[in-house]
Simulated scan of single mutants.
Amino acid sequence: MTNPTLRREVINIYKRRSYPLGYAYFQPRLHKAFMGNAGMSDEGEIRRGIARADFVRKGTDISV
């Protein structure tokens, strides 16, 4: 990944700590998902991954 802005966004998504079912529930799932996508290099593909992560986060957020 060459774009530092995208890198920062991805790291912020991974380090987010407020999860409706608790961090212990989401951490192994997050790790597996992020490691599965670690080889992404296309900026469009990375942006789609970020959008998907936001969609999933909003879908699991009970307080919305």
Score class of each variant (00 low, 15 high):
Met1Ser: 10
Met1Arg: 09
Met1Phe: 04
Met1Ala: 08
Thr2His: 01
Asn3Trp: 01
Asn3Gly: 02
Asn3Glu: 02
Asn3Pro: 01
Pro4Asn: 00
Pro4Thr: 00
Pro4Gly: 00
Thr5Gly: 03
Leu6Arg: 04
Leu6Thr: 01
Arg7Lys: 13
Arg7Ile: 06
Arg8His: 12
Arg8Val: 04
Glu9His: 09
Val10Asp: 05
Val10Ser: 08
Val10Thr: 11
Ile11Asn: 15
Ile11Cys: 12
Ile11Gly: 11
Ile11Tyr: 15
Ile11Leu: 15
Asn12Thr: 12
Asn12Trp: 09
Asn12Met: 14
Ile13Met: 13
Ile13Lys: 13
Ile13Ala: 14
Tyr14Lys: 13
Tyr14His: 08
Tyr14Pro: 02
Tyr14Gly: 04
Tyr14Trp: 08
Lys15Ser: 14
Lys15Glu: 15
Lys15Asp: 14
Arg16Tyr: 12
Arg16Pro: 01
Arg16Asn: 12
Arg17Leu: 05
Arg17Ser: 14
Ser18His: 05
Ser18Gln: 08
Ser18Lys: 09
Tyr19Glu: 02
Pro20Lys: 03
Pro20Ala: 10
Pro20Ile: 00
Pro20Trp: 01
Leu21Arg: 11
Leu21Trp: 06
Gly22Leu: 08
Gly22Ser: 10
Tyr23Met: 11
Tyr23Asn: 10
Tyr23Cys: 04
Tyr23Glu: 12
Tyr23Lys: 12
Tyr25Asn: 07
Tyr25Gly: 00
Phe26Trp: 07
Phe26Thr: 09
Gln27Gly: 00
Gln27Glu: 10
Pro28Lys: 07
Pro28Ala: 05
Pro28Gly: 04
Arg29Val: 09
Leu30Pro: 01
Leu30Cys: 05
Leu30Gly: 05
His31Trp: 11
His31Arg: 15
Lys32Gly: 07
Lys32Gln: 14
Ala33Lys: 14
Phe34Val: 11
Phe34Tyr: 15
Met35Ser: 12
Gly36Ile: 04
Gly36Ala: 12
Gly36Ser: 11
Asn37Ile: 05
Asn37Met: 13
Ala38Glu: 15
Ala38Met: 15
Ala38Ser: 15
Gly39Leu: 12
Gly39Tyr: 13
Gly39Ser: 14
Met40Gln: 14
Met40Gly: 06
Met40Cys: 07
Met40Val: 06
Met40Glu: 10
Ser41Phe: 10
Ser41Met: 12
Ser41Val: 13
Asp42Thr: 04
Asp42Pro: 04
Asp42Val: 03
Asp42Lys: 10
Asp42Gln: 07
Glu43Pro: 12
Gly44Ser: 14
Gly44Gln: 15
Gly44His: 14
Gly44Asn: 15
Glu45Asp: 07
Glu45Leu: 02
Ile46Gly: 03
Ile46Phe: 04
Arg47Thr: 15
Arg47Asn: 15
Gly49Trp: 06
Gly49Asp: 04
Gly49Asn: 11
Gly49Tyr: 05
Ile50Pro: 01
Ala51Glu: 14
Ala51Gly: 09
Arg52Thr: 11
Arg52Gly: 09
Arg52Trp: 11
Arg52Met: 12
Ala53Cys: 12
Ala53Ser: 14
Ala53Pro: 03
Asp54Val: 03
Asp54Arg: 13
Asp54Trp: 06
Asp54Ser: 06
Phe55Asn: 12
Phe55Val: 08
Val56Lys: 09
Val56Asp: 04
Val56Gln: 06
Arg57Cys: 03
Lys58Gln: 03
Lys58Ala: 03
Lys58Trp: 00
Gly59Tyr: 01
Asp61Met: 02
Asp61Tyr: 02
Ile62Gly: 00
Ile62Tyr: 01
Ile62Leu: 03
Ile62Met: 02
Ser63Ile: 02
Ser63Trp: 01
Val64Glu: 01
Val64Tyr: 00
Val64His: 00
